[in-house]
């Protein structure tokens, strides 16, 4: 038992690969989380002195109407996003996985939005929504389009969904394409002989066999949508009249410049737990429907 452990060459390689990542993860993920919790216990305004206030912030998060409103918006956004992105990307993946000309080039093109930064895309779309669409609306005489939808408290969130979905679809489509490729060709052929075509083929064979990929896509998409920030920063800055204020944006905005660093840290910590809970919930529910090939 007292023999000193000597590291084998393999173990050294493993550690060499693992340790830098662990350090980075700790510094940029774990540490901020711990510090966030710590600041959540204070009345820190982001500057100056602060005192410990116990769990007061954590309780007040649940009573704050602005926080409540941002949760409502974020959930609405995340649910619509998750459904829209997954339906569209699955349809795209089915198309891009079929025998069509220029399939690889098209796959490349559909992936482009993913490599552009969220803010860049946001500003491009902001330009489209603010200038191009109203101009088209005016020229065509469509009154609905002639005012920027970014200025409407009812419709601004739709603009954010469009931009978020445009970007989110890219990654999801790629994941679905790889999922569709795991379905063995002869299973489809057996289905063909059994008379399973069209919708039945999709419902009875394809869908159940790509369940693991649906799970991962739903979880990732939900998580990304819950943490929506870039698009709001670029398009609406939470407006008009806080109608598109997501939780992340509220935390950033009021935490950094609103003098609520402590309070928003508590908000952020609770938000973290909410996302973890949702992800675990999704994986357990969907995991039951997954089929090991």
């Amino acid at each position: 038992m007292n023999k000193k452990h000597t590291w084998s060459k393999n173990e050294k390689v493993f550690l060499g690969l693992l340790i830098p990542i662990l350090i980075l993860f700790f510094c940029f993920n774990t540490l901020p989380l711990i510090k966030g919790f710590y600041y959540g216990l204070t009345n820190f305004r982001g500057y100056g002195n602060y005192d410990f206030v116990g769990l007061r912030n954590f309780i007040e998060v649940f009573q704050d109407s602005r926080v409540g409103k941002s949760y409502l918006f974020t959930f609405k956004y995340a649910i619509v996003m998750t459904i829209a992105v997954n339906v569209i990307s699955l349809i795209l993946a089915l198309g891009l996985n079929s025998k069509i000309r220029g399939k690889n080039a098209l796959r490349g093109i559909y992936f482009v939005p993913n490599i552009l930064g969220g803010l860049v895309v946001g500003y491009i779309f902001s330009f489209i929504f603010t200038y191009i669409l109203p101009a088209i609306g005016e020229a065509a005489g469509i009154s609905f389009l002639s005012n920027s939808i970014l200025g409407s408290t009812t419709w601004a969130w739709v603009a954010i969904v469009i931009v978020g979905a445009w970007q989110g679809i890219a990654m999801n489509t790629i994941i679905y394409i790889s999922g569709l490729q795991t379905v063995p060709e002869d299973v489809y052929e057996a289905g063909m002989l059994d008379g399973s075509t069209g919708w039945r083929k999709f419902k009875d064979i394809t869908l159940p066999l790509i369940m693991p990929f649906i799970t991962i896509n739903l979880v990732l998409c939900m998580k990304n949508a819950m943490m929506v920030f870039d698009q709001i920063m670029a398009l609406t800055k939470g407006g008009p009249s806080q109608s598109t204020e997501s939780i992340s944006y509220l935390i950033y905005n009021n935490g950094m410049s609103g003098g609520q660093f402590g309070f928003q840290s508590a908000n952020a910590f609770i938000f973290f737990i909410v996302i973890v809970a949702i992800s675990i919930f999704q994986t357990t529910i969907l995991g039951k429907k997954e089929e090991q090939l």
Binding site: D186, A190, L193, M211
Partner: peptide, 18 residues
């Protein structure tokens, strides 16, 4: 294929795994 009144057994079984 489905209207030819044939059935086929594949080398890799091709069963519906789910």
């Amino acid at each position: 294929p489905k209207d030819r009144d044939i059935a086929m057994v594949f080398q890799n079984y091709a069963l519906y795994p789910h």
